[in-house]
């Protein structure tokens, strides 16, 4: 009997190694299915966007709900991010008397990396998760089927407006966060290091930072927005299994968005040389 259970070739239970391989294979299949599903969804969304078959009322409603209502959390995050950048730089600035470079130091990291990354993570938690929960609930309560029966294309009516709203929200919020983080950094520099806002501003605009640095961060925000919008819509539409299924879909969105943001951040940074 013992030989039977350890040797699958003799018709017994599959061994631990086979189970391990099966789980790896299953993981790859699942990842391939998700990637394929997101690609098909992206193609369907783009086909509506290019033919301007997007519900304008839903778009404005989602822009308000996603962008305007996210302002408080973005304000808090951005102001403190700028302040933290200055606190981290304070020791070096004091030691070398490099007050004139404080603006550049805070601006470089904030504009290229920290503002788009932290804004994306905040928006992912607030907007992406909420979007998945809403779509998932609509799926399990047959509201999406009801739309179809009413001869209304759910992609044009529900998904494309949300997709555009999420990408636009992240772009606008990143731009807003850039400005606020620099403001937070400038006033923290004055409070902690006695660096006047004028000196801080001169450090920012002395020529070491340019439009390319702002554009770098904004490009990242668009890429992050795309992955977040796709993940939240895809997992929302794939929800099954009632209320627990909605919870699983939200979880999958948060994990996929966060992982996607970091991986794409690396790839975009690498491609743009920083």
């Amino acid at each position: 009997m013992a030989a039977q259970t350890t040797n699958p070739s003799k018709g017994g239970e599959p061994g631990a190694f086979a189970a391990f391989l099966a789980s790896i294979g299953g993981g790859f299949l699942s990842a391939a299915q998700t990637t394929g599903g997101m690609t098909i969804l992206l193609a369907r969304i783009l086909s509506r966007v290019l033919r301007i078959k997007v519900d304008g009322r839903e778009l404005w409603k989602n822009l308000y709900k996603m962008a305007v209502k996210s302002l408080p959390i973005v304000v808090v995050t951005a102001l403190f991010t700028g302040a933290i950048m200055v606190i981290q730089a304070a020791t070096i600035v004091k030691r070398y008397g490099a007050e004139g470079l404080l603006g550049w130091g805070a601006g470089f990291g904030t504009l290229r990396e920290i503002a788009p990354l932290l804004t994306a993570l905040m928006i992912s938690g607030r907007v992406g998760a909420n979007n998945t929960a809403e779509l998932g609930t609509m799926v399990v309560t047959e509201q999406l089927d009801a739309l179809r029966v009413l001869a209304i294309d759910p992609i044009s009516f529900l998904i494309a407006p949300r997709f555009i709203a999420i990408v636009s929200t992240l772009f606008m919020m990143t731009l807003f966060a850039d400005a606020l983080a620099l403001l937070g950094a400038a006033y923290t520099g004055q409070a902690l290091l006695g660096v006047s806002p004028t000196t801080f501003y001169n450090g920012l605009t002395a020529g070491l930072l340019g439009f390319g640095d702002v554009a770098n961060g904004l490009l990242k925000s668009v890429v992050f927005g795309l992955v977040m919008a796709l993940a939240s819509c895809y997992f929302g539409l794939s929800t099954s299994g009632g209320a627990p299924g909605v919870g699983r879909a939200v979880n999958a969105t948060v994990v996929t968005s966060a992982a996607g943001v970091f991986v794409l951040d690396y790839l975009v940074s690498f491609a743009l040389g920083g």
């Binding site: 029966v149 009413l150 001869a151």
Partner: peptide, 20 residues
């Protein structure tokens, strides 16, 4: 084609499927 055909239909779902 289904979208066009569905213009002929009205449907009440088991769970009503009202837009919340």
């Amino acid at each position: 084609d289904l979208q066009k055909m569905r213009l002929k239909f009205g449907m009440l779902f088991q769970n009503n499927a009202l837009f919340d």
